[in-house]
Design a binder for these strands. Structure first.
Length: 266
DNA sequence: ATCAATCCCGCCCTTACATCA
DNA sequence: TATGATGTAAGGGCGGGATTG
């Protein structure tokens, strides 16, 4: 999926934290993720992410009671008063249906505009169940669901839209969390490698005979071709760079693959 | 076959409101 | 009771795909 792609790009560019000066140079995919990160306020290595499912269904029982009570006057949902319904574009005779349900959103006596519907616990639960089965609805499904819930199809459509957005936001948050952890690991690895490099440099400067001893000690036999591999340079494949079998202390993770097998040096 | 106009749908951003601490 | 934070239904803009003339 493209999410994985974004993840890879971010890791590669090390864009989880800090400096924004490269923003204009980033490809659109990365810029998009960056934008999301800004929305989520991940400008740096950031604390306090809220993960896990928090859906309408998870509202407290007390809240639900209130909602249920509040909608007692309407079979459908709890409108406090009205909402400016402008958009009715669904086919399948939706206009007729919308007429039926329009009274749910009628203005109250003082004509004050735009108050807000709260879905009942039951409506939310049913919508949630349907969303688990399929995150998008066909016109027929939308129509049926709207009838079942005594809502307008447009309201069902909007609910699914918002629900998809919430899902996506949560997924983005989890991706960010993952990237944070990856970034931390890479930082640690980098620090460790820098330290190891310093040690190697100091060893090279201070104790040449020791190095020669190591070279002798790391003479191995390739199990696949059974020829000798000398790690001391010039012995394996004509490459002038230090061979992979040479190591002091623990190996870096990225050296364990794909060169783990000794025959790779052949 | 091509193209512009239109429709439909989904996504995104935003607003307005309800609810809670 | 007032207020800021949070959750969410809904408005509106935009882009992309399908359809149509």
């Amino acid at each position: 999926m493209d999410r994985d792609c974004n993840t890879g790009l971010l890791l590669g560019l090390g864009r989880v934290s800090g400096d924004d000066s490269l923003g204009s140079l980033l490809p659109p995919e990365v810029a998009d993720v960056k934008k999301k990160l800004q929305v989520l306020k991940f400008d740096d290595i950031l604390p306090s992410l809220t993960l896990g499912l928090s859906t309408v269904v998870e509202k407290s029982a007390a809240t639900d009671e209130l909602i249920q009570q509040g909608c007692s006057g309407s079979p459908a949902s709890s409108f406090s008063n009205s909402s400016g319904f402008k958009r009715e574009r669904d086919g399948c005779g939706e206009e007729k249906e919308a007429e039926v349900y329009m009274k749910v959103g009628e203005e109250d006596e003082d004509g004050s505009p735009r108050k807000k519907l709260r879905l009942t616990k039951q409506q939310s639960a049913i919508l949630e169940d349907n969303f688990k089965e399929h995150s998008s609805l066909s016109p027929k499904q939308k129509q049926d669901l709207a009838k079942q819930l005594k809502l307008r199809p447009r309201q069902v459509e909007v609910w699914f839209q918002n629900r998809r957005a919430r899902t996506k936001l949560k997924q983005t948050e989890m991706d960010c969390e993952l990237l944070k952890k990856c970034c931390e690991k890479l930082k640690e690895e980098n620090t460790r490698l820098q330290k190891e490099l310093q040690e190697l440099k100091s060893l090279k400067l201070t104790a040449p005979p020791f190095c020669m001893q190591l070279q002798a000690a790391t003479l191995t036999v390739c199990p696949s071709c059974e020829s000798s591999i000398c790690s001391g340079g010039g012995g394996g494949g004509g490459d002038a760079s230090p061979p992979n079998t040479f190591s002091i202390g623990s190996k870096p993770h990225f050296l364990e693959f794909p060169f783990k097998h000794p025959s790779a040096a052949c």
